[in-house]
Design a protein around this nucleic acid. Sequence first.
DNA 1: AAGTTCAGCAAACGAATGTTTACTGAATGG
DNA 2: CCATTCAGTAAACATTCGTTTGCTGAACTT
Lengths: 191, 191
Amino acid sequence: MLDAGLHLLADQNLASLGVREVTREAGLSPAAFYRHFPDLAALGVALVEESLASLHVMIRAVLAEAGDAEELIDRAVDVIERHVREHRGHVRFLARERHGGVRQVREAIDAELGRFAAEVGAALALQPVSRGWSEQDLRMLAELYVDHMVSTAAAFLEALETDPARGRRIAVTARLQLRLISLGREHWQAG
Amino acid sequence: MLDAGLHLLADQNLASLGVREVTREAGLSPAAFYRHFPDLAALGVALVEESLASLHVMIRAVLAEAGDAEELIDRAVDVIERHVREHRGHVRFLARERHGGVRQVREAIDAELGRFAAEVGAALALQPVSRGWSEQDLRMLAELYVDHMVSTAAAFLEALETDPARGRRIAVTARLQLRLISLGREHWQAG
DNA sequence: AAGTTCAGCAAACGAATGTTTACTGAATGG
DNA sequence: CCATTCAGTAAACATTCGTTTGCTGAACTT
C-alpha cells in the first residue's frame, strides 16, 4: 500500500491524494485502507520514514569515505546522482512534500533533515580543516552542505524526468560549487 | 480571484485545489471561474507570474546596491527577510509549487528562476572580484546564490509560521554562509 | 480444538466535485 | 441608440469521494 501511494505521488501531491485512489491502485477495497492508517497524513508520515531511511544510508556512505577534498567532492556528487536514479520515487516525494500542504509531513522531513545536518557537522568537526571552528560555524557549514545536497538532488530529479542529458551539466555545476565552498572553508577566519 | 486562490493555498497545494472552492472563497458562482481561466493550472501559472514579479524587484534591489562584501551580505539577507514577511503568500506558493504536482507551474517557476540566475550572473561579472572568471564559473556561482536565496527564504517562511523567534538564527546562519561563499570567490583559481 | 486477532470484502450514506447550458444585466463602442 | 462583449448567475448532470457498518475467512495462540 505504501508502494501504491508512492507510485501515485509521482504525478500528484499528498494533499490531493484520495483514499479510494490508493486502495484502487493497490487492488484493495476502500475500507481496507483504514485497517492500516487512520489518515492519509499518517500514510505520508510513513512514507517520510521510508524515504529518509534510504537517504540516511546515502549520507553515511558519503561521510564514511576518505581522500582529499577533490576526491570527496567527486564521490559525493556521484553518490547523490546514483541515489536519485535508484530511489527516484523517494526523492521526488521528499522534494515535493518538504514544503507541501501537510504540516505533519513537513515537520517530519525538516526534523530529520536537521538531524542529518547535526550528523554532517559532527563529521566535519573531525576533519583537520575544521581546527578552531566554533560550534556555530560548523553547524552553518553543515546546513549549507545539506541544503546544497537537497538542491542538487532535486535538480538531478527534474533533469531525469525531462531531459536526461542535462544531468551531466548539473553534476559539473554541483562539483564546481562544492569546490568553491571548499575554498571558503580553507580560508575561514584566515583571510 | 487570484487573491482567493492564494489565500486558500496557504494550507493546501495547487493540485488539491478545487474550482468550487476558489469561487466560494471569492464569493462567486462556480461557473464564473471559467470566464477567467480554462484550468486550475492556468490559475497557477498566473499566480507564478504574480509571485515572481514581486521577487524580481527584490532581486534587482539587491543587485543594484553597492558597498563592500560585508555590507552587501547584510543588506541582501535583510531584503530577503523583509520580502518574505511582506509577500508571505507568494513565497509560500513558490516554495510549495516549485516541486509540486503541476508540471506547467513547475516549469514556469524553474524557467523564471533560471532567468534570475542569468541576471545575477551578469551582475556578478561586473564586480572586480570576478576578473578572469569563465562564463561557466559565473553561471555556477549565480546558481549557487539563487539556490541559497531560495533556501533561506523558505527557512524564513517556515520560521515565521511556527516560531518567529527563530528568524534571528536563520539570518545569522545565512550571513555566515554568504561570507563563506564570498571567501571562496576571492580565492577562486588563486589558491 | 476453541477462541481471538487480523486483513480483507461489499454495500450504502450523504456530501462534494467539475463542467455545461441557457439566461441576465451592465458596460462599451461605433 | 443599438449591438456586442463581458462578467456574472442558477440549475442540472453524472461522478467521485470519505467513512461506517456488518460480515467473512484465514492465521495465530493457548
